[in-house]
Design a protein around this nucleic acid. Structure first.
Lengths: 252, 252
DNA sequence: CGCTCGGTTGAGGAGATTCAACGTGGGTGG
DNA sequence: CCACCCACGTTGAATCTCCTCAACCGAGCG
C-alpha cells in the first residue's frame, strides 16, 4: 500500500515558487515574500482519490495548490453528491465556507496533488501587517464566488448539452491559463464521467449520452478517465459562455 | 410616475445604525466606527422591481442593505434567468464577482430597499488601515460562498420538492435572524412564484405544482406575492438541511 | 370596463432517471 | 500464468419528472 498523504517540511522556497513564474500570475514584492515564507509551514502530497479536507472537520491549515487537480464537493445524507468546483494550481483551498469554523465541504484529489500548507491562525497577522495580501485574499474569495455564480446559472438554466459544453470549456481554459497541462502533451482533463455527472447535476447514464453527442459533434474526445477538448470555440458557442479574461491574478 | 431610485446624503449616522443594534450582529469599535462613517457616502432608496446593479456595468459603489429584500441574478442571452441569492439587511452588495472590474450579475429590489452607499476606491484605505474590517470583508465573502455552495447542492441534487422546502426554510431563517420581518406581523417572504422558479431552476408551472404540495402538507401558505412559512422544522426535515448557527456576525 | 399580473390547472411530449446488461482493460490473488 | 474482479464506459428499455402550451380565475388599477 502506498502512502496516500504525506506532510513534509517546506522544500520549495517561496521565491522559487513555480506558480509565480507562470504568466497570468502576479509576483510578490520582497516584503510579501518574507511573510509568505514564514506563513508556509509545509508541503502536502496526496494520491488520486485521497481526501484533503472533509466536511464537518475543523482544519487548522489552509492550502494553496502547487500541482495537480482536485475538486470540492458536498453530499446529502443519502449519498447524493454535488461537485461545487475544481481546484487547480494557484487556488486557495480551505478559505471557502466559514473562515475559522468547521469546513462545510470536502476536497478530494483527482490526480496526484501537491499543496502548500499554511497556518490558519496566522491569518490575523496577515491582515494586520500585510494589507496587500489581505486584499488578495478577498480578491480570491471574490473570484471563487463568480465561478460559483456561473455554475449556478449553468445547472439552473442551461440544457444538459449546454451544461456539459460549459463545464468542459471552463475546465479547459482554466487549465490552460494555470499551465497545469503537461508540456507538449495533449490537453487532458483528468475526470471520469461520474465526476461530470456530479458536477452537472445529471445522472451518470444521461451524462454519458450527452458527452457522446459532444464527441459525435467532434468537440471533445473521451478517453479512459479523461477528456480531451478538441474545439474550444464551438463549446463556447454552444454554451453561450466566454471566459472573462483576467489580468495577472494574485495567489498566496 | 414615482421615482424608482434616489441617492441622498447620509441621514443615519453609523453609530445609530439599526443593523448594529440587532442581535446576531457584531458591533464596531469606536475606531472602526470613525472609518466606516467616512467610508459611507450616502443612502440609496429604490422601489420594488428597480434594478440596483446591472450586469456588465462598472460600479464605483458598494452597498450594504439597511432595510428590505433584493436578489442577485444572471441571465443567458435568450432571457433565461437564474437567481443566485437573496440580499437582506446587513448584506454587502457589489463585492461578489470581481473586486474592481465590471459586475458579473445584476441586483433587483423585491421590496422597497434602502442601502448604505460606500466608495469602492476607499477599499484600499480600508485594507491598509483597518485590518479588522478587512478581515470582516473576507468573512462576508466567505459566508456568501458557503450559501452558494448549498444552493448548488440544492439545484444539482435535491428533488423539486426538497429544493422548494430548502429555499423557503433558508429564506425564512435568514429573515428571522436579520430581523427583516415586520414586528408582530406574520412572517411573509416577499416573493412571486416566478422568483422561486428562477431560483430553483424549474419552470413556473412545475414550481406552482410543487409549492401546492408544500401548502397541502401544511408547511407553507401562499399569498399574493408572498409566502408564509408555517412549519419551519418540517421544511428542514424534508430538505435534509439545517441552518448553521453563527455567532455575532460582522457587517460593514 | 378592460387590462395586466400573479396564481392555478390539464394535457401532451420532451428530457432525465432508473434498472439492467455488456465490454474492456488493469490489477490481484490463487 | 490465468481467472477473477473491479472500475469505467456504453447502450437499450421502461418509467417518471419536468417542460411547454393553453386556458382560466381573481384582484388591482387606470
Amino acid at each position: 500500500m502506498v502512502t496516500t498523504k504525506s506532510l513534509i517540511p517546506p522544500r520549495i522556497p517561496c521565491d522559487l515558487c513555480p506558480i509565480g513564474r507562470r504568466p497570468h500570475f502576479r509576483n510578490f514584492t520582497q516584503e510579501e515574500l518574507g511573510f509568505v515564507q514564514s506563513f508556509k509551514i509545509g508541503e502536502l502530497s496526496v494520491d488520486p482519490g485521497a481526501t484533503v479536507i472533509s466536511e464537518g472537520e475543523r482544519h487548522p491549515q489552509l492550502y494553496t495548490v502547487l500541482t495537480g487537480w482536485g475538486y470540492r464537493y458536498k453530499i446529502l445524507e443519502d449519498g447524493r453528491r454535488q461537485i461545487l468546483n475544481y481546484v487547480l494550481p494557484g487556488d486557495l483551498v480551505g478559505l471557502q465556507g466559514n473562515l475559522m469554523a468547521e469546513m462545510m465541504h470536502s476536497v478530494e484529489a483527482l490526480t496526484r496533488l501537491t499543496l502548500c500548507t499554511f497556518e490558519r491562525d496566522k491569518l490575523t497577522t496577515l491582515f494586520r501587517d500585510h494589507p496587500s495580501l489581505a486584499y488578495d485574499l478577498t480578491w480570491i474569495a471574490s473570484r471563487e464566488e463568480s465561478m460559483l455564480d456561473e455554475h449556478l446559472l449553468s445547472i439552473g438554466r442551461r440544457t444538459a448539452l449546454e451544461r456539459a459544453a460549459y463545464l468542459l470549456a471552463f475546465l479547459d481554459t482554466r487549465a490552460e491559463m494555470t499551465g497545469v497541462f503537461v508540456e507538449g502533451g495533449p490537453n487532458i482533463l483528468p475526470l471520469t464521467q461520474q465526476h461530470v455527472a456530479d458536477t452537472l447535476g445529471l445522472s451518470l447514464v444521461h451524462t454519458n449520452k450527452t458527452l457522446r453527442k459532444l464527441a459525435d459533434m467532434g468537440m471533445v474526445r473521451w478517453l479512459d478517465r479523461g477528456c480531451e477538448v478538441l474545439d474550444q470555440r464551438r463549446l463556447f458557442d454552444l454554451a453561450g459562455w466566454r471566459p472573462t479574461k483576467e489580468g495577472p491574478r494574485p495567489f498566496i
